[in-house]
Amino acid sequence: MSQSVQRSDAELLLGRYAGRVALYFALVGLGIVFVSPLLWLVSSSLKPESQVLAYPPQWIPRPVRFINYAEVMQTFPFWRSAWNTMVIVTGTMVGHLFTCSLTAYAFARIRFPLRDALFVMVLATLMIPYHVYLIPQYLLFRELNWLNSSKPLIVPFLLGQAPFYIFLMRQFFRTIPKEYDDAARIDGSGWFGIYLRILLPLSYPVLGAVAIFTFMAHWNDFLAPLIYLNEPKKQTLAIAIRTWEALRLQAGAKPASWNHIMAVSVLLTLPPMLVFFFAQRYFIQGVVMTGIKG
């Protein structure tokens, strides 16, 4: 270790330079591995059918068939089901950002008897597969007269029934130095004030992550919407797409080939990706604002 201290400046600089080069090499190499499946996805979605399975693999579609998307979107009510999905996603996101963060705050910062036991209970609810309490929950929502509405898909989350996000935010809150709390207390903030004025503003990165995770999870949620929503006009996007795929077989129409399947996959992927780009700003803000790092 002391070697590095004794190195000459030039050596240090050189070593540093080599390290940087190696770092960028690694980043580029891994980056290619991570991104190429996605590029392949997008490229395949724009290919004509004849090119989809060509050897050697062709990265550039020729000709570029944007019409694949039009063909796919024609076959199911894209905009309506996207809107239905949006409604559910928005509702759950509000719940996750507010209720879950408040719950996480209590678990992370407040001292009260039974806290850890209650937290273990929260964690435990993550460990039961949904498939087995689907029917019991269905019976419950029937009693509430909530079947065939999006309430079963939203209200539980408004009340924070998302242990994953509580856990995530609790872990994050616990890494924020307590000195900030104490400073705020001296300024006269109460516990809720600390949550609102200290913790939340310091937590943009994790709130951004929660927003993205929520969006992804509920954008794609398939089973619960299928069970609770009856009418086709209430269908969510994931269901509409699945229906479309199934119907190609059922209807004896020309079955979808890979280019169409990939186009559908891009359509499914695009909105969460947009949310990611939007939320990115908040990751960065969080870092800048806290002034914790460099």
Partner: peptide, 14 residues
């Protein structure tokens, strides 16, 4: 008539 449609794979679950 109110239609209720579910995909084949999950129709019977529902």
């Amino acid at each position: 008539i109110t239609e209720e449609s579910a995909t084949w794979g999950e129709y019977f679950d529902k």
